[in-house]
Amino acid sequence: MIDFGGWDMPLQYGSQIAEHHAVRRAAGIFDVSHMGIVDLKGAAVRPFLQRLFANDVGKLEAPGKALYGCMLNEAGGVVDDLIVYFLGEQQFRAVVNAGTRDKDLAWMRRFAAGFGVQVIERSDLAMLAVQGPEARGALAAQLSAAGAERALALGPFFGEQIEGWFVSRTGYTGEDGFEIMLPAGQAEGLWRALAAAGVAPCGLGARDTLRLEAGMSLYGSDMDEHTNPLECGLAWTVALTPGRAFVGRQALEEALAAGLKRKLVGLVLEDRGVLRAQQRVISAGGAGEITSGTFSPTLERSIALARVPVAASGTVQVEIRGKLHQARIVKPPFVRRGQPLIG
């Protein structure tokens, strides 16, 4: 057990590698109740999110549709990365990181008053993630026939209230699956039922190796308040549509005008060993640093995300315990839907 954002959470239930493979090959279940669920309500909730969120909630037209993006500070640094669900014209739901929850709520409330928006923390809800090629079927078996039909009809990045549970086709593993927000008192029952049906309980360790193989960023490691999303591989989540006046936009445009200095890339270690956060990366284009590194159970070698000068490409050296090891720059993701994408 480890402390994670104030929550006691298991790093693993048994073998971390076995848990990882279960998600890539069948199905695994994660207790992600540490994530913060925040309901945002009010007539002006959409304009509020247009101000607060660097992605464009104008893209959210169909009820239940989700959008990933960042909240930025005035300097363009990342306050947090989050998913926003469109539940209705007067109601959105945000899912934020555990370690940043208090800061996020304060940041939202700072702007909410001006828009007449209520920021409601849903600490009454727990959240489970069921992930893997067999995950959707496993969850459907826990619902009524009508509920199962609705859950299985959900498109990627859509969520819906089904029989008292908010079920969304999202995740942090690179596999298909669902995340389920449900009354906290029902979480244990669902967990036990899924585990009894053969879904593998998975800890934070497998969650980290799965997300890293999927090329997904982790707040606090790959980005924070001192990095802008354009230098963390998150440019695709920033909507610089004309007329959008979101917090941090001006700083991002200044950074773009001055020219970006750094970029986030994937690394594959060619030698034996394990890449870890904070190791130094030496390239022909200058020095950089690993932001997240691990051993990839799917590729059976070490992979990492690293922040390097924009000119870096091809082969680089990584310093591990005083020795240089050869690594190759690649474009994440490393693995998707069970399949290696890196040769």
């Binding site: 790093l11 693993q12 073998s15 971390q16 590698i17 360790g205 034996r272 060993g273 394990v274 051993f295 070490s302």
Partner: peptide, 8 residues
């Protein structure tokens, strides 16, 4: 330590 993946 958990599953070992590298030993020097």
């Amino acid at each position: 330590l958990g599953d070992l993946v590298f030993v020097e």
